[in-house]
């Protein structure tokens, strides 16, 4: 028998933990965000009714900015993580490393950019 060596995928375990959390966020928070931006706002429906707009979500309140960050970052992470694994299942398994690299790159850049905007707006007082 071969000597047993098992390398605990500790990093992957943590990434998976975030992925799981992201799935929870995408399931519970993303639908309402899409509703507000893609239905309520363009069609002037409740709760915006033409009075407020989605920018209020981002800058109207610190809680709103937090909501945007958590929802978008969580969904992005979850979506990309899952999609690259779905790609490995339709014949791209041998490119797994590359897919993962691209996937994490997109996640990383996306979240950094998002955080950068929100933090600068907070620091320059756009977010009240």
């Amino acid at each position: 028998m071969k000597a047993e060596t098992h390398k605990v995928a500790r990093l992957h375990a943590m990434l998976w933990g975030i992925f799981s959390l992201g799935g929870m966020i995408a399931a519970f928070l993303l639908p309402v965000l899409i509703y507000m931006t893609a239905i309520a706002y363009p069609y002037s429906l409740w709760p915006f009714n033409g009075a407020r707009d989605p920018s209020f979500l981002v800058t109207g309140h610190l809680l709103g900015a937090l909501f945007i960050f958590v929802t978008i970052a969580g969904s992005l992470y979850h979506g990309i993580f899952r999609f690259q694994s779905a790609l490995t299942e339709v014949g791209l398994l041998k490119y797994r490393r590359a897919l993962e690299a691209v996937g994490y790159f997109i996640i990383f850049v996306g979240i950094i950019v998002l955080a950068y905007y929100l933090v600068t707006w907070y620091l320059n007082g756009t977010i009240t």
Partner: peptide, 15 residues
Amino acid sequence: RFPIVHEMEGAWECT
């Protein structure tokens, strides 16, 4: 047992 099920080819492959 943890190292066996928690290595990359352990439980993590499951989707």
